[in-house]
Amino acid sequence: MGVKMKTTSKGEEHNSHPKGEEHNSHPPYVKIYVGLLVLTVLSVVISAIVHREYAPPFVFTISTIKGLLIALYYMHLKYEGRIIISLALIPLVIFAIILFIFMPDILSTVKQ
């Protein structure tokens, strides 16, 4: 299997896909990974120190930072055009609509 991969990895397709060059300068993936790990540990530590009821603002902020790192760099949204960006953002608007416009009706009944 290893031999086979060698032959196919020689870059024969280089000519048919000339746009490969633009990806040569890429974000520091491994550094971002380390950052993500640190943030994960941080959120666990916070949840251990702070009482469960007061932890959500902190841990969800950390989640959002982590999500943004992945979306912007790993999913390359930082480098995308308008079409892709809007395809990523519209769902978030809908999420917000569901959350906030449903809220007064759903929160008015206390669940048991």
Partner: peptide
């Protein structure tokens, strides 16, 4: 990343 704090941490 959101499910983890939602159910496990808080």
């Amino acid at each position: 990343l959101y499910i983890f704090p939602l159910f496990y941490l808080t």
